[in-house]
Simulated assay, not measured.
Amino acid sequence: MDTVEKTSDDSVTPALGGYLAEKAEGPQQGPAEGADIPAAAVTLFIAFGSLVAMAWQS
């Protein structure tokens, strides 16, 4: 990224693209975002587990 910024001037404007460029420029993922999936999985397990148990009781 630094090399591209150093070579930019009024006549030449280099550009980067692709997955690595997006990851370098995008916001970093924090630890709270990594906990979303397990929390959702636990919630779904409790909800659907109780539905299955209720269906088997009938």
Rank of each mutant, 00 (worst) to 15 (best):
M1E: 03
M1K: 02
M1I: 03
M1T: 05
D2I: 04
D2V: 08
T3Y: 07
T3P: 01
T3W: 05
T3S: 11
V4F: 15
V4C: 14
V4D: 07
V4A: 13
E5R: 14
E5C: 09
K6M: 09
K6D: 07
T7C: 12
T7N: 08
T7H: 04
S8W: 15
S8P: 03
D9Y: 04
D9T: 03
D9R: 06
D9Q: 03
S11N: 12
S11E: 08
V12I: 14
V12Y: 10
V12H: 08
V12A: 08
T13S: 11
T13M: 11
T13H: 11
P14C: 01
P14S: 02
P14G: 02
P14N: 04
A15R: 12
L16D: 00
L16C: 02
L16Y: 00
G17M: 06
G17K: 01
G17I: 00
G18N: 01
G18E: 02
G18L: 05
G18S: 02
Y19R: 11
Y19H: 12
Y19I: 11
L20T: 01
L20F: 07
L20K: 05
A21F: 10
A21Q: 08
E22L: 14
E22M: 13
A24P: 01
A24V: 01
E25W: 04
G26N: 13
P27E: 15
P27Y: 05
P27C: 03
Q28N: 15
Q28I: 12
Q28P: 13
Q28Y: 07
Q29T: 13
Q29F: 11
G30I: 05
G30H: 03
G30R: 05
P31H: 05
P31I: 10
A32E: 13
E33V: 00
E33Q: 04
G34K: 06
G34D: 05
G34C: 02
G34H: 03
G34V: 05
G34E: 06
G34S: 04
A35N: 06
A35I: 10
D36Y: 09
D36C: 01
I37T: 10
I37Q: 07
I37Y: 09
I37V: 15
P38M: 01
P38W: 02
P38N: 00
P38H: 01
A39H: 12
A39G: 12
A40Y: 13
A40D: 10
A40L: 14
A41L: 10
A41M: 10
V42R: 11
V42T: 14
T43D: 09
T43E: 12
L44M: 13
L44N: 14
L44V: 04
F45S: 11
I46E: 13
I46T: 09
A47K: 06
A47V: 05
F48H: 11
G49Y: 00
G49I: 00
S50D: 02
S50R: 03
S50Y: 00
S50I: 06
L51G: 02
V52P: 01
V52M: 09
A53R: 08
A53Y: 10
A53M: 10
A53G: 06
M54P: 00
M54Y: 12
A55R: 15
A55G: 10
A55T: 11
A55D: 09
W56A: 15
W56L: 14
Q57F: 15
Q57P: 08
S58G: 15
S58F: 15
